[in-house]
């Protein structure tokens, strides 16, 4: 796994995720990267990667909406001008 720091360089984060606890994809997986969004601009995130943590908060055991809410709040907060993602290429429930 790897820590990826995504600067809030655009008005949107620009990723779509699927998955969460109690689904076939137990941890959120990136399914789309929108061109022009902060994630795309960072060049760090890729489709297919699985998000293990957001700003040090584990997504393990979190259902889809809760995981999405955590990521949305990490993007919204003015405390930081970046989001740290712990990412793995391995699509498994670690």
């Amino acid at each position: 796994s790897a820590l990826m720091r995504v600067a809030k360089s655009a008005s949107t984060l620009g990723i779509a995720i699927e998955g969460g606890a109690n689904t076939r994809q137990p941890l959120p997986r990136i399914v789309t990267i929108q061109r022009g969004g902060s994630a795309h601009n960072s060049g760090q995130l890729k489709v297919g990667q699985v998000i293990l943590e957001v700003n040090g908060v584990s997504l393990r055991g979190k259902e889809h909406r809760e995981a999405a809410r955590l990521i949305a709040e990490a993007f919204k907060t003015k405390e930081k001008d970046y989001i740290d993602f712990l990412i793995t290429e391995l699509n498994v429930a670690l």
Binding site: T12, L13, G14, I15, A16, I17, E18, G19, G20, N22, T23, R24, Q25, V31, T32, Q34, H64, R65, A68, I71, A72, F75
Partner: peptide, 16 residues
């Protein structure tokens, strides 16, 4: 484990 995995529903997709 595999059988259980297959019975789990697909996830919704959220754009962030």
């Amino acid at each position: 484990v595999r059988e259980k995995r297959l019975t789990l529903p697909p996830s919704e997709i959220t754009m962030l």
